[in-house]
């Protein structure tokens, strides 16, 4: 420690040691932060169409278009649409507390949410196929803005109460916290195709909610369905089983994916 240079090197050297231990402590501190995620996921509509799912598809193939409802939020009223769209929507009361906001602790930077459609392969020895239908990057309040972050669409409840000029730019509904997601009749971001080119009339499919918690410091964690210490497993977040319907004729309904900025948000270029 006799000269300026040696002192600077010593201070910096010990600083790196301290920084390492503080970072390790932060990474470990999330273990005692309780988590109790829950969500409800319902299939709204599924259609199978034959065509070119992307502009760069070289051949016509069957592809599935999955619409879904996701409710990961504490709510008192939800909108329930009857199966046929001719009837007016009914408002029902529901007091379930469903949310992913406990995934956001002090060390969470963002949570990558995704919904997969899982269906068995044609060959019994092969593992089931999983395809992502929709995804979103939900930032925590401490994360800086980024163009790929998800922007939550206005929900019926909030849209009516707040003025329309006040456009929401948050990844969660107004007056809510990160981890609250309420999507009704959400279009998919991605259409599903199968390697065989055939997806119509395949059975036993489910929609599943998955996440990847990305912390500021520490390990990535994925969906867990089992309790582990203070971390409760995910409750719900899985749709009932459904079968892909037969191929639609020429007159297919609207099978577009989400458009505009939302389409590109969180997905690679």
């Amino acid at each position: 420690m006799h000269s300026v240079l040696v002192r600077a090197q010593n201070v910096f050297g010990f600083f790196t040691t301290v920084a390492f231990f503080v970072a390790a402590l932060i990474a470990l501190s999330v273990v005692v932060s309780p988590q109790s995620p829950s969500a409800s996921l319902k299939l709204r509509n599924v259609q199978v169409v034959k065509g070119r799912p992307h502009y760069y598809s070289t051949k016509k193939e069957e592809y599935a278009h999955v619409k879904f409802d996701l409710d990961a939020g504490t709510y008192t009223r939800i909108l329930v649409l009857p199966p046929s769209n001719n009837r007016p929507p009914l408002l029902t009361r529901n007091v379930a507390t469903i949310d992913l906001s406990t995934l956001f602790n002090w060390n969470t930077k963002q949570v990558f949410l995704y919904i997969t459609a899982t269906y068995p392969s044609l060959s019994p020895i092969e593992p089931p196929s999983q395809a992502i239908v929709w995804d979103a990057i939900i930032p925590s309040t401490s994360a800086p803005w980024h163009q790929n972050q998800y922007i939550h669409p206005p929900t019926r409840n909030t849209a009516s109460s707040s003025s329309k000029s006040l456009k929401s730019t948050a990844a969660f509904p107004a007056n809510a916290s990160p981890g609250i997601v309420r999507l009704a009749s959400q279009r998919p971001k991605y259409q599903i195709t199968d390697v065989t080119g055939r997806i119509a009339e395949r059975g036993n499919a489910t929609l599943e909610l998955g996440w990847n918690v990305q912390p500021w410091v520490g390990a990535l964690t994925w969906t867990n369905r089992r309790d582990w210490g203070y971390w409760k497993g995910l409750v719900g977040g899985r749709s009932e089983q459904f079968d892909f319907p037969p191929l639609k004729g020429k007159k297919a309904e609207d099978v577009g994916t989400v458009k505009g900025g939302e389409k590109n948000r969180g997905s690679p270029a």
């Binding site: 932060i26 501190s29 602790n105 002090w106 060390n107 401490s142 500021w216 410091v217």
Partner: peptide, 8 residues
């Protein structure tokens, strides 16, 4: 940071 729950 832990008490204020703010990693910044």
């Amino acid at each position: 940071g832990y008490i204020a729950q703010n990693i910044h």
